[in-house]
Each structure stands twice: as C-alpha cells, then as structure tokens.
Design a protein around this nucleic acid. Structure first.
Lengths: 337, 337
DNA sequence: TTAGCGTGTGCACACGCGTGCAGAGACATG
DNA sequence: CATGTCTCTGCACGCGTGTGCACACGCTAA
C-alpha cells in the first residue's frame, strides 16, 4: 500500500503464464492469432498480477495514440459546456481518449504544440478562435482537425456548424409575421463566423419584406455585455420593438434589462429572441424564444467526421451544416394563423 | 501537404546538426549539460525540421506522463462546468496535461482502467460518485487521487471540499434572524456528502434556536426535479416560509414555481436560498441569496494538493476545507441590524 | 514415407526518448 | 611534464509494447 506500485509489464505476465511476451500482446490485441488455451492462461496470469496494457507504450509502438485533442473555451456558456460533454461522450463511444485544453488563457499558442507533442490523432475545436500561426502548425502536423461552430474563410480545415444563416432568417420571418418593424441585433464577437452569419440571416430575412436592421450592438456573447448592449438599444428613440441576440446568455441579459430597468412588458412592448436553446432558456422564468442548434447532432457529426478520417486515413476538407429549428416561447408574440 | 506528415525524430535533428542524439535530448531537457554552441546548432536544426519532442516516448522513458486525469460529471450544472475550467487552468499553469473523462455515462467503471492505462500521474474527481470497486483500483494504482466536493467515509483518499456544514449553518442563522420559523430543505442526491453536510449544517444552526427543519424533499441537484420538490413543499399546509436548496439550480427552479405557479412574493411570502453562487444566481432576474463556495480556491487547493504529492512523491491522505461565504441578495429579507 | 498445409508461437527488431557512464579535451596546478 | 579538475559529448541500454517473419507442430493427401 505504500509507494508508487511497481508497474507490471507483459513480460511478467508471460513468465507467470509460461508463454512468450508476444502471446500476451496478442491476447490483448483484438483479432490476433492466439489459441483459446493460451489466451486463457494469459488472462488468468494477468488477473493475478492485475496487469493492464500500457497505453503509452502501445501508442509509441503503433504510432497512434488513440487520443483526440479538444480545445475548449467559453465553458461559462452553458452551450459550450454541454458541447464539451456531448463531444466527450461521442468520442468515448468510439473508444478514443480525450486530451483537454481549456483555451481561455491567452497562452493558447504555447499550449497547442504541447497537445500535438502528445501525438493526438486528431483535434476538435469548438468555438476557439484560432490564430493563423496555430492553424499552420495544426495543418503541418498532418492530423485531421474539425472546427465546431466556427469556420475559416480559407477553406483549409473541416468544420461542422449550425445553419446560422437559416436560423437568422427564421427569426426574421417570425418577427415580421408577428408585426415587428424596428428590429435590433445584439452581436457576439465580430470576428466569429457564427455571429456574422446569424446577423446576415436576419438581414436577408428582413430584406425580403423591405425592412433593415434598425440598430446593432455588440455583446461579446456574455451576459454582462449583453445587458449593456440592450441598455444602449432601449435608450434609443424610436425604441426597437424586437431584439434578436446572437445567443441565449445575452438574450437573458437583455430580458432582464427590459423588464427590470425599463419596465417593459415582454412580448407586448418588446420581443426578444435568443440563440442556442440552452437549458436555461426553457426555464419558466425566462421562457425565451430561441433557435435550437441541435447540439447533439452537431457533436455527433463532428466526431463522425473526425473518426472517419482517422479510420480511413483519407484527408479532405468537408463542411457540414446542421439545420436549426426555431423554438417559440413566451418572449415573442403568438403568430397569427 | 498530403498524407500524415512523417514524424521527425531527434535522430534526424542530430544528423542535421552534426551531433549525437543525446545532445538533442539534452537541449530539450531543462537543466541538462549542453554547451551554448551545441544548443544553438540543435535548435537551429530543430527549427528547420519543425522538430518537437515526442511526449509519448518521453513518458515511456521517464515513467511519468505529465498527464492528470479528470473525471468530470454534471457539466450541465454551471458550477461543475466552471470547476472543470478552473481545474484545467490551474493544471496547465503547472504544466500538466489533462486526460478528460466525462462520467455521465454509466460506463464509468470500464473507463477508469482506460484512464489509468494511459499512465496518468494523478487523478482529480470533481463530484463523481465513485464505485467502491473503482476506488480500490485507483488505490491499487498507487497514483495520488483528489476528490473535489465529495469525500468518502473511509478516509482512504484525499479531498477538498467547501465548508458545507458551515455554509448550512450560516443560512440557518440568516433565516432565523430574518424571522423565519418554518424552514424547508431541498436536498440533492442522498448519497452525496455535500448535500448531507449542508442539511446537517442547517439543522444544527436551527437547533440552536430550538427549531427543526419542517420539511424535506429531494431534487437530484437539477432544475426540473428541484421544481417538482418545491411544488411538493409549497402544497403543504402550513406552507414553509423559507426554502433552502442544496444548490442554485434547484433554487432557481423553486423560485420559478413559487412565483409563477403559486403567485408568491419573494422574499415577503417566501424566502429562498441556494448554494454555489453560480453566475446565474447573480443575474438581475434571480438575485438569489446563496452561499459562495469559492470555487477558484477549491480548484487551487485541489491542484496544489495533487501537484505536491506528484513532485515530492509523498503519499498521505489530507482533507482540506475551504470556508464558505453567505451572499445576501433579493430572495431573502433584509437582516435587521 | 514425403510433401503440403494450416495454426500457433517465439525471436528480434522497431517505436522515440532519457540518462548513467566513461571518456575526450581544455585548462589549471604542482 | 605529470596530474587533477571541470565541461561537455557520445555510446549504449532501458522504458513496454506491436508485429513481420521464420519455424515448429499436427494433420491430411498422395
């Protein structure tokens, strides 16, 4: 019970079982040539010694670690926390291990090489903003990379995203159909494709009815900045009669500001729409109308995309888009039939 | 640009630099004997070939992977999502890599051995409920383990937790001081030490004033079940005039039920207190009175505890307790002076 | 009997790296 | 010059595994 237990190797198992080390190795390698008798003796010896194969050594030998790197960020946003959980679960289902990097620190650029040094077989980046230098390094490593909920202008790396343009368009349709004309937008960060695309979708949808976005602020995808943006928007004259926020967290901030500070009735005086359909959005106190990105599907597609490339070894950039669904709740007026 | 780039090894760098492989190794090993001249040539050659040391091979050779396993769960709870982020950040600061396991799947028991097979140097478990069988396996592996926000009856593994008893007691004092007498409790899961201790603290604090907990329900630490529990409690007669919930998520569920379904004024008709001081608790719409566990401090202590054992190799069970702080907001009455 | 075949098995090398050890120089000291 | 010290370098082995290859063995067919 004291000291770091001496690690038991396949050699010792082999000795105890009276076979060669190869036999042990083959016993633990699915689909290898071992007689039933040998396998039995090996397993017995292994159990006795509490042997379990050393994945590090295996990785070295097979030149494949069975590890996938995930570069997570924005974990304070429930959407990305859930995304991480979902990605992990999917990867575990495919028997991959996960090397995690949390990228809120600005040291990201020194951390990615470290990730690669562990010979991860592939990398998934949900929502990370990737410096072009790191993109080059990842590219050069020759390992498949999948971006989730982001993409890069130069189509150099695969991605899975929600249909942000379509989602924005659906919001536009809903707002127009329920009688709104002065529609404002609260963006996330300007350099993210998701925020840009949602805005574009909104603009397109409105344009179809000859309407333009009446005002726009930036909320950095977080609650506090979202509230500030809403405060700005609601102080204008004429006041917007609807606000579309690039995510739920900001929408809840806007909702609070509208109710608490401006005493507005929602949706009578002001409609508010979010994006993500996070769990909180459905809570009775919010009842936020929002857009469901089908996070589970996105995670599944991302992992599938990656695993496919890992198994077949084929490389090829691919961009998948997961449809989005409008979820009507209590922060928008009822649609007339 | 095609195919998995051939991995470049230290031998090739050595050849290009005209030195031995040892020199290359030493150049990348802090505190090793290399002349300035050799180091320069090696670094130059390395840069030219885009060489970076293979951490897997290093791990095998050094018999230490530089990896720490984190077994996460309940990522849908903002508190644990933040905890994961904080733990990661702390570990990264200490230059450890993170092998992540998300344990919401019931397959946890098959996953832990896999984690160990990657030769993690240590393991951190926030909030995981550990089967006794896995506890044995972890124990046998001889690797340091730290439980966060949980502990085991048999003091066989180190832990860091918040002062749940103290927190519960503080809540009791507040509620009594603000005139409440019929105080109910919504528990998390019965088999978690954190929920039990918070309840115990509450009971102790109330007992000091000759009061007992008037009712109790279980909310599984999640929003939905929390709301159901609140519904039960508020349907009783006489109705409780205060509810203490074992975490914020359940408290928000209770808050909703109280306001929306029962039309109660908070805090006039009913006081509600949560636990965790999650970000959402502070949002204007909730303004939830709660207990701050000082998550950052907990993460720091946990990592420090682990890293200390990793560096010094000394083993020894230790239990640390991080003080909790009551955060008064709008869901409880103002304290009289 | 001999040749041929199919099934298991063990040998030996490879994977990429760290490091103890011995030894080569350079230099100072006696 | 002889000896010692100090700084660096390369050799060679070990870390624990996977696997190509040769080969042993038992059996069948000619």
């Amino acid at each position: 019970m004291k000291g770091p237990k001496k690690t038991v190797s396949s050699a010792e198992v082999a000795r105890l079982a009276g076979v060669s080390r190869s036999a042990v190795s083959r016993t633990f390698t699915p689909g290898a040539y071992v007689s039933e008798e040998t396998r039995r003796r090996v397993l017995e010896a292994a159990e006795m010694l509490h042997y379990s194969p050393n994945a590090i050594a295996r990785s070295l030998s097979k030149k494949s670690s069975g590890l996938v790197g995930i570069i997570a960020s924005n974990l304070d946003n429930p959407f990305y926390a859930a995304m991480l959980a979902e990605l992990s679960s999917q990867l575990q289902r495919h028997d991959y291990g996960i090397l995690l990097l949390v990228a809120d620190s600005p040291k990201l650029d020194t951390l990615i090489p470290k990730l690669l040094s562990y010979q991860v077989d592939g990398v998934i980046l949900p929502a990370a903003t990737l410096s072009s230098q790191m993109a080059v390094i990842l590219q050069r490593s020759g390992r498949p990379v999948v971006l989730v909920n982001r993409y890069l202008r130069d189509e150099v790396v695969s991605s899975v995203s929600g249909d942000n343009v379509g989602g924005g368009r659906a919001v536009a349709e809903l707002l127009v159909a329920t009688g709104h004309r002065r529609i404002a937008f609260i963006a996330g960060q300007d350099d993210t494709s998701s925020s840009r695309d949602r805005q574009q979708g909104l603009a397109e949808g409105l344009a179809r009815h000859g309407i333009a976005i009446c005002a726009r602020e930036t909320g950095q995808f977080n609650h506090h900045q979202g509230a500030i943006a809403a405060r700005q928007l609601l102080s204008r004259y004429p006041r917007p009669d609807a606000i579309f926020c690039a995510n739920d967290v900001m929408a809840m901030g806007a909702l609070e500001v509208a109710k608490v500070e401006f005493g507005l009735r929602v949706p009578e005086d002001l409609a508010i729409v979010g994006y993500d359909n996070s769990e909180q959005a459905g809570w009775p106190l919010h009842q936020l109308t929002t857009v469901d990105q089908h996070l589970g599907a996105m995670a599944r597609e991302a992992v599938e995309l990656l695993v496919d490339r890992l198994r077949t070894g084929h490389d090829g950039i691919e961009h998948r888009i997961v449809p989005a669904t409008l979820v009507q709740r209590a922060t928008t007026r009822r649609r007339p039939d």
